[in-house]
Write a protein that binds this DNA or RNA. Sequence first.
DNA 1: ATACGTCCTCCAGTGACTAGAGGAGCAAGC
DNA 2: GCTTGCTCCTCTAGTCACTGGAGGACGTAT
Lengths: 141, 141
Amino acid sequence: MQAGVSIGEAARVSGVKVPTIRYYEQVGLLPEPPRTEGNRRLYEARHLSRLAFIRHARELGFEVDAIRTLLDLQDHPGQSCSPADSIARLRLQDVKERIARLNALKAELERMIEGCSHGTVAECRVIEVLADHAKCGHPGH
Amino acid sequence: MQAGVSIGEAARVSGVKVPTIRYYEQVGLLPEPPRTEGNRRLYEARHLSRLAFIRHARELGFEVDAIRTLLDLQDHPGQSCSPADSIARLRLQDVKERIARLNALKAELERMIEGCSHGTVAECRVIEVLADHAKCGHPGH
DNA sequence: ATACGTCCTCCAGTGACTAGAGGAGCAAGC
DNA sequence: GCTTGCTCCTCTAGTCACTGGAGGACGTAT
C-alpha cells in the first residue's frame, strides 16, 4: 500500500472534477481523507472506489440522498438488500416515466417542425402551436 | 372588453402558480400588467395568452432564454421564422439525446434489478454493479 | 368590527454543482 | 536562492427555474 493520491489525480482516474470531489466531501458522501503536512488531501484506494461508486450512481441518475443510503448499505453487507432494490426500482420507474414524457414531446416537436413552411413568423407552425395548445396533439400535458 | 383578472384567477386558468407568474414578470417574460387602485395586478387577455404560450413552451422543455426569443418573434410576425425553427430543432435534438441516454439507463437498471436475488447486501447485484463499472453493460457512460 | 382569504414585496432556500477570489505549497529550471 | 507555473487550499457567490416564508395591506362577507 502506497501513500495515496492527490485530489487532481483522483479527479483524473475517477472522471469527477476536483471541485465536485470537494463538494461530495462537504455533503458527506465521501469521507474526509487524511492530509499531507502541507494540508493536501491524500486519497487512498477506499476513497477512490467510493468515488467510482458515486460517479456511477450519479450517471444512473440517483440523487445524492439515495446514494447516501446505497453507500450506507454497502458498508453493512449483512443487511437485507431490499432497500437498495426498492431505490433502484423507484429510479427505474422514474426513468420510464421520463422516457414516456420525452417521447410525447418528441412527437409534438416533430409535428411542429414538420409543419413549418420556412416563411414568416405569421404563418409559422412552431409559434402557432406554442400559442394555441389546442393545435398540438395535446397528449395530456 | 372587461377589466381583467387577478393573479389568482390567472393562475387558475393558466395552470401556472401565483409565485411563478410573478417570477415570469420579474425575469421579463411577462409584461407588467396594469394595477388596481389597491396595487393589485390586473391581467388582460393578452397577458393570459402570453402566459399560456410560456406554459406550453416550458412543458416542451424550452428554456426561459429560448422562450424569450420565441415570444419576441411572435411579436414581430413579419420576420422570417427560421430562428424559431432552429430553436425547435435544437430542442428536438436535445430530446432525442435524452431519450437515448435514458433508454441506456433503463436497460442497465433493469439488468441490475433483475439480477437481484433479494438476499443480503453482500450478494446484491444492485450494489455490486454500482461499485464496479465493469459489471454493467457499460454503454459508453 | 372582525375574520378570513387574497394580495403585496422582499429575501432565502432548493439540487448538484460550478466559478472566482485570494492565498499557500511544491517541483523544476536558471 | 529565486522565479515561474502548476496544483492545491478555503470561502463565497452564482447557476436554473422556481418555491417558500415573513410581515404586512387589501377586500369582502358576516
